[in-house]
């Protein structure tokens, strides 16, 4: 469904991504793991159009989408839950969800998807009139995933959804991710929490300083001594 080939991304003089290639097959969960600064966030930002690629190609559903504008990729089916959640702080929870339906003409569909979000995260329903900025970190993360559910992309790019969450909430978020995948969404998951990510993923890629270093089925990667030592702390 999504193919990244020889991706390069520069920030001014800094080469953040030197050569990253991977593939996300339809209906699967693929995880990118790697140390801080490896380039995971940058890779996701390049896919969703927030950063320009200075080389390589990104193909989505057979279409070259390299360097397309971010807002044009949303209706094509790419939903990106960014690092740090990026909830609109002075929009209410309700408005945060509503605006995620910006590109959807039929507002009935937006309302229906918002209902799905409320069913998945009852806590979000209780807080609809609260300002986004006043939510707790965990609630913000749920809202961020909720927004992506409203946007309704076929592929979900998730950047560290477990960051800063208590262990119970981490489990809850991972359960939601699996549920979304079961409902037919393809998932590209970036995680520091490699153990949890490898648990739910089908495939894994390890990024090191701008390169894809190893890759393979998640089960195999979990057993790989190099991965175990560097990312699973065993």
């Amino acid at each position: 469904m999504l193919t990244v080939k020889n991706l390069k991304v520069n920030y001014g003089q800094i080469e953040a991504i030197k050569e990253v290639s991977f593939e996300v097959p339809e209906g699967k969960i693929v995880t990118l793991i790697g140390a801080n600064g490896a380039g995971k966030t940058t890779t996701l930002r390049a896919i969703s159009g927030l950063e320009k690629a200075s080389g390589g190609t990104i193909t989505f559903k057979g279409k070259d989408i390299t360097n397309q504008e971010a807002h044009q990729l949303v209706p094509l089916g790419i939903s990106h839950v960014p690092e740090g959640r990026k909830i609109f702080p002075t929009l209410t929870v309700y408005e945060n969800l509503e605006i995620a339906g910006w590109t959807i003409k039929d507002k009935k569909i937006v309302k229906q998807r918002m209902e799905e979000v409320f069913t998945a995260f009852p806590r979000i329903r209780e807080r609809i009139s609260q300002l986004g900025g006043t939510l707790s970190g965990g609630e913000q993360q749920m809202l961020a995933v909720g927004r992506a559910m409203v946007t309704g992309g076929e592929i979900l790019l998730l950047d560290e959804p477990s960051m800063g969450l208590a262990p119970v909430l981490v489990d809850e978020i991972f359960e939601r991710i699996v549920a979304l995948n079961k409902m037919g969404r393809t998932i590209l998951l970036v995680e520091q929490n490699a153990a949890e990510a490898l648990e739910i993923a089908d495939f894994a890629y390890v990024l090191e300083v701008g390169y894809t270093k190893y890759s393979g089925p998640a089960k195999v990667m979990k057993a790989d001594p190099r991965v175990r030592e560097a990312y699973l702390g065993v």
Binding site: G49, E69, H71, V74, H80, F88, T90, L91, W102, T151
Partner: peptide, 15 residues
């Protein structure tokens, strides 16, 4: 209001 708060997030909403 969304664009004034966070342009990247607004883009990711398709704005």
């Amino acid at each position: 209001r969304a664009v004034s708060q966070d342009k990247d997030a607004a883009k990711l909403m398709g704005i």
